[in-house]
Design a protein around this nucleic acid. Structure first.
Length: 587
RNA sequence: GGGGUCGUAGUUCAGUUGGUUAGAAUGCCGGCCUGUCACGCCGGAGGUCGCGAGUUCGAGUCUCGUCGGCCCCGCCA
């Protein structure tokens, strides 16, 4: 029997036609004389009817049907009696009277029902991922994922990009994340690394005159997993020659806006606002601010300097900061318990505690006001624009801890007070990142983005003197508080690249050993170029409204980076170890 | 490396202060049923309480360890 229609397309227009449907038994309702089967495929459900008066044999055979059996049926489309129309189904106006039934494949009883809305443990769902993927939610997510990549390919194609594949077996690169390694059988004691990104290859392609490259490709980083992070993930990677930030931003904006339009039918405004890293850190404590709500951070260090409150003065004396958030109108809604919980949030990010002041009509309430004189309190309240009904929360510590703790207290507050409008889409560029940051452990500067990121021209003279003040031509794209992409204008001058390596403490031999091929390439007419890479999984997750990256990946890993379906990773045969000339040395 | 949380029929869960034979719903199996659509009615089967020690006359329940899922810190150029 050859399928003539899918299970989601028959309507009144097909009444009278003889059709053949194939699909899975969704439910079977056996009335003894009459059997109803809801037949499922990814397009929908169709009710088929087995009536012994239409075909005795088919009816008899249908008694053995069970859930998830794969069947083919042939019969005539009929209108349902008027009061039997099922408005819940697209195909609810019709049903198919079957005169031929073929069981293509029976099914064991599955460990869980993939169609019912019963909450099933994620471990079990991952073990039987093929069943879980039948659910409408995952079907919808994977379809959205495909629509997004298709739109991206369309847009980039129109803009003159070509997709070029780069190696998966490649060279281990220093810095950055931990590499996944693959032993080389033909070259004992040597290893390939799986790429953390195609970074070096795409820059090399610019030297080749490819002009505009993109690739939707897997990247690998052997680090711990999170809700929005997998060791194996997909980047939309791109690179362009002869561009500056403006051209690159507008292209990326068009790509994102078109994606929203084509997949969700939503118009997003372009151009996206641009926020300098420094301003983002000052106002939100993070380089990926969620701009859907306010609760901005205010520096009150100068106001409280010299107060009798040791927590503040000690932080300031040690070169730290005191910053605050005015939680407008929250005096009623934020309980003592909520403030304790927020304090725990602050502590998670290194703060030793979280001070607060409640402004009431009849004065201030707080465990710390006794340490301040009235004049200082007045100025403090004025600085944060405080009014009766507000609560001011404080963090005092090193700049990094103040930023980190308040950024996360801010997010927790927004969730607690339900300040986030889920319909809002707030995209922004964050620019002028520091080129390097000091690594206390390694006692040297390390590239914040990567060592090929171009410094800003006006900061070039600080490369030697004050490296930490040099700003980079690097940028991130932030969507509702998530970093969804990042990139930079690259260094194409050999001279600047050498100064960069010098600052990072990488000598000539080391540079040659680690990045030799790119450095060679850059000597042979490297055009000015820059690029960006987007995290596809995160973008799909946000557009799908999914709560975990696992919900937009067909076969995701668990938090311990295993696959419950394939049981990867697994032990290997000693023969394979011998071939690779590898030996365990477990400690 | 660290913190939190969960683990009991196939599944989702309940299980009191440590006390008789561990329950419910759903699913599954059998029977009945010609207008259901999460069909209905009757009956039945189904448990290494994640695993291992310990405390106790007695452990699903308490203690320790361990394994696994999830969330978080660190980590993620």
């Amino acid at each position: 029997m050859q399928r003539t229609h899918t299970c989601g397309e028959l309507t009144e227009k097909n009444i009278g036609e003889v059709v053949t449907l194939c699909g899975w038994v969704y439910t079977r309702r056996d009335h003894g004389g009459l059997i109803f089967v809801d037949l499922w495929d990814k397009t929908g459900l169709t009710q088929v009817v087995l009536n012994p008066q239409i075909d005795k044999l088919a009816h008899q055979e249908a008694q053995s049907l069970r859930g998830n059996f794969v069947i083919a049926v042939q019969g005539k489309v009929r209108a349902r009696p008027e009061d039997m129309v099922n408005l819940k189904l697209k195909t609810g106006a019709i049903e198919v009277y079957i005169d031929e039934l073929e069981i293509l494949n029976p099914s064991s009883t599955p460990p869980f029902s993939c169609w019912e809305n019963q909450e099933v443990g994620e471990a079990l769902r991952l073990k039987h991922r093929y069943l879980d993927l039948r659910s409408s939610e995952l079907q919808r997510n994977l379809e959205l994922r495909y629509k997004i990549t298709r739109t991206v390919r369309d847009v980039l194609h129109q803009k003159g990009f070509i997709e070029i594949e780069t190696p998966i077996l490649t060279k281990s690169t220093p810095e950055g994340a931990r590499d996944y390694l693959v032993p080389s059988r033909l070259n004992p004691k040597k290893f390939y690394a799986l790429p953390q990104s195609p970074q070096l290859f795409k820059q090399t392609l610019m030297v080749s005159g490819m002009d505009r490259y993109f690739q939707i490709t897997k990247c690998f980083r052997d680090e711990d997993l999170r809700q929005d992070r997998q060791p194996e993930f997909t980047q939309i990677d791109m690179e362009m020659s002869f561009v500056d930030e403006d051209q690159l931003f507008s292209l990326a904006e068009e790509m994102i806006a078109t994606t929203y339009k084509e997949t969700l039918g939503i118009e997003v405004e372009t151009p996206f606002p641009v926020l300098k890293y420094k301003d983002s850190m000052n106002r939100f404590g993070t380089d990926k601010p969620d701009l859907r709500f306010g609760l901005e951070i205010v520096d009150v260090g100068e106001v409280v300097r010299g107060a009798g409150f040791k927590v503040f003065t000690q932080a300031l004396d040690a070169g730290g900061q005191v910053k605050a958030i005015n939680v407008k109108g929250s005096a009623e809604s934020l309980s003592r318990k909520a403030l304790d919980d927020l304090t725990e949030v602050a502590k998670t990010y290194g703060a030793k505690g979280m001070a607060w002041i409640k402004i009431q009509e009849n004065g201030l309430q707080s465990p710390i006001i006794k340490f301040f004189d009235k004049e200082m309190l007045d100025r403090l309240i004025e600085t944060v624009n405080g009014e009766p009904g507000d609560i001011i929360v404080f963090s005092a510590d090193t700049p990094a801890i103040v930023a980190d703790s308040l950024a996360n207290v801010r997010l927790a507050l927004a969730r607690l007070l339900k300040l986030i409008d889920e319909k809002k889409i707030k995209l922004a560029w964050v620019t002028e990142f520091p080129l390097v940051e000091y690594d206390a452990e390694e006692k040297r500067y390390v590239a914040m983005h990567h060592p090929f990121t171009s410094p800003m021209e006006e900061d070039l003279d600080k490369l030697q003197s004050t490296p930490s003040e040099v700003r980079a031509r690097a940028y991130d794209l932030v969507l509702n508080g998530n970093e969804i992409g990042g990139g930079s204008i690259r260094i194409h001058s050999k001279e600047i690249q050498e100064r960069m390596f010098k600052m990072l403490g990488i000598d000539k031999e080391e540079a040659e050993l680690k990045f030799g091929f790119l450095l060679d390439a850059l000597q042979y007419g490297a055009p000015p170029h820059g690029g960006i890479a987007f995290g596809l999984d995160r973008i799909v997750m946000i557009l799908a409204g999914a709560s975990s990256i696992r919900d937009v990946i067909a076969f995701p890993k668990t938090q311990k980076a295993t696959c419950l379906m394939t049981q990867a990773p697994s032990e290997i045969d000693p023969k394979q170890m011998n071939e690779l000339k590898l030996k365990y040395d477990l400690r």
